[in-house]
Amino acid sequence: MTALSVEGVSKSFGGLRALSDVTFTVAEGETVGIMGANGAGKTTLFSLIAGHGRPTEGDIRLGERSLLGLSPDRICRLGIARTFQIVKPFGGLTVLDNVVVAALYGNADRPSQRDAEARGLAALTAVGLADRADGLAETLTLSGQKRLEVARAIATGARFLLLDEVMAGLTPPEVAEMLGLLDAVRRRHRLTLMVIEHVMKALMQLSDRILVLHHGELIATGAPAEIARDPTVLRVYYGEGA
């Protein structure tokens, strides 16, 4: 069943066309990887889906419902949560308070504070941060803050997660750990994921399907193995002659 459809979406910033005529769908339970060079428009795509900014053209729908014009908090309560490439923790709050507020406000069923605390703690446990619950979020390492981004998204109760480079800047063992926990979380909560990642091996391993953006255009889509030998992709990634 189709969870999300992106239909003919373009986004211009002044003269710059960050996305042009991008169309694809994501099925429920699927993990879709997104690759593309710096500035290809990956983060812009996530921002538009999450309600930060409006497409210049096109439509984005969750099931049958158009998300255009909805505020980000509304979209979150409809079940889509994003993480930020440049982490945005609530630095002066404790790690636990970071996820409790996500549980309190992100869930459409309006949990009580006590309930939200339980859900928050579960999300921290899922990403391995439970032992840091009482520390201030700003004292976490980068790896910790990336995991907190994921925990916050999980705590909102969203079924659809947009993960923007949650492995960037991590050491190889940390990447392996993140891969493991993402896999566990998506199974347990039957999540649909869209994952932006430059760590190619990780992306290939995690994704059912990969979309390739290049200068704002969707130039290829297919299973990881197909993408790895797609001539267009090879050409833009490794230059002509490849």
Partner: peptide, 21 residues
């Protein structure tokens, strides 16, 4: 809790469902 979250980061607060406005 919502107010403290938006004090720390308004965009992140919105993203986790806090109706900041």
């Amino acid at each position: 809790r919502g107010l403290l979250a938006l004090r720390e980061n308004e965009e992140a607060a919105e993203t986790v469902g806090v109706p900041v406005v």
